[in-house]
């Protein structure tokens, strides 16, 4: 039996705004096993980032999470700030997506790395420095000694992204939540970083959650993929199944949108028609039905549950289970 490091069940995230409540994440259940990489795919606003902000205890002040997120012996959603702080940056780390603003502008990047080691490993300045420089080298930062003393604005976006990654990996976490970790990197560095992540995964059993809309990265690193739409998981399957035989029309649409080198240069890039829904006014039934080519009457009336039907997916085409059990 594989060991689950993170087990999210029935997670709901609501934001109180002036125009009413926004349902950012609804009834999400996901888990990550030791040494496994779970890919999370979806458009902007699909709730993929907020799911894991909730797990990290980093929701904005007007956000509220219910459900549970078990990490080892702790339920992250119920843990107090003190307990969270012994876990965050230590056993559970996050890589943020915007490298230009994710680092404190008035602190040298070296200090931003060493403070993690001082906090969680109790290292002195000298030991922390050696460790931080070594980690900088591991994430492909050339001349780490020199860059250790630099301020974020003196580094390129790609270098900053690698500093953020180094920061997450410093304490050898059991689980790394990476939100678009390679988007700011050029392809060659991206490949090296993915190699490093693969190595950590295989040799040290580090678990990864890879939040991205780059299906290529998912194909390269993920073992399982959860596709999110309008705050819900609509399909959850092994990476092989997702790419070879996607079952949910939204997953099919996403895959069809990926350009391929073998496409004719003049071919029109397919898109999914319509816009992602407004989270305050979700459509009735299946949230995807207004954009779905295979829609039929039941989709407008009832919401399909996430159930077995080739893969774990939420579509009446593959099974007839409605959410709430009334089939």
């Amino acid at each position: 039996m594989t060991q689950r490091i993170l087990d999210i069940s029935d997670l709901n995230v609501r934001f109180a705004t002036e125009d009413g409540e926004v349902a950012a994440v609804s009834d999400v259940s996901l888990h990550v096993n030791k040494g496994e990489c779970l890919g999370i795919v979806g458009e902007s606003g699909s709730g993929k980032s907020q799911t894991f902000m909730a797990v990290m205890g980093l929701l904005a002040a007007n956000g509220k999470a219910t459900g549970s997120a078990r990490f080892g012996e702790i339920d992250l959603l119920k843990a107090n700030e003190h307990t969270l702080n012994t876990v965050r940056g230590n056993r559970l780390a996050m890589v943020f997506q915007d490298p230009m603003t994710a680092l404190t502008p008035h602190m040298r990047v070296g200090r931003q790395l060493t403070e993690v080691l001082e906090r969680h490993r109790g290292m002195d300045t000298k030991a922390a420095r050696a460790e931080a420089v070594a980690m900088m080298a591991r994430v492909q930062i050339t001349e780490p000694e020199r860059r250790f003393a630099m301020y974020p604005h003196e580094l390129s976006g790609g270098l900053r992204q690698r500093i953020v990654l180094a920061m997450a990996l410093l304490c050898g976490p059991e689980l790394v939540i990476a939100d678009e970790p390679t988007t700011a990197l050029d392809v060659t560095v991206q490949a090296l970083i993915l190699d490093l992540m693969r190595e950590l995964k295989e040799k040290h059993g580090t678990g990864f959650v890879l939040i991205t809309h780059d299906l290529g990265v998912v194909a390269g690193l993920a073992d399982r993929v959860a596709v999110m739409y309008a705050g819900r998981v609509v399909e959850n399957a092994s990476v092989a199944e997702i790419f070879a035989a996607p079952r949910h029309p939204y997953t099919k649409g996403l895959l069809a949108c990926t350009p391929r080198l073998t496409d004719a240069p003049t071919a029109v890039l397919p898109t999914i028609p319509g816009q992602p829904p407004n989270l305050q006014k979700l459509p009735s039934g299946c949230s995807f039905h207004p954009r779905c080519a295979a829609v039929f009457d039941r989709c407008r009336a009832e919401r399909p549950a996430l159930a077995e039907g080739g893969t774990l997916n939420a579509c009446f085409l593959n099974h007839s289970v409605a959410a709430g059990g009334a089939a």
Binding site: L58, N85, R88, L103, T104, M107, E115
Partner: peptide, 26 residues
Amino acid sequence: RTNFVRTARAKGLPYRTVVLRHALKS
């Protein structure tokens, strides 16, 4: 509300440190 304060919190730094070391100067 800045992203870098969020990063600092994600590092598990106590809130005091986050405020005094990361947020105060800006």
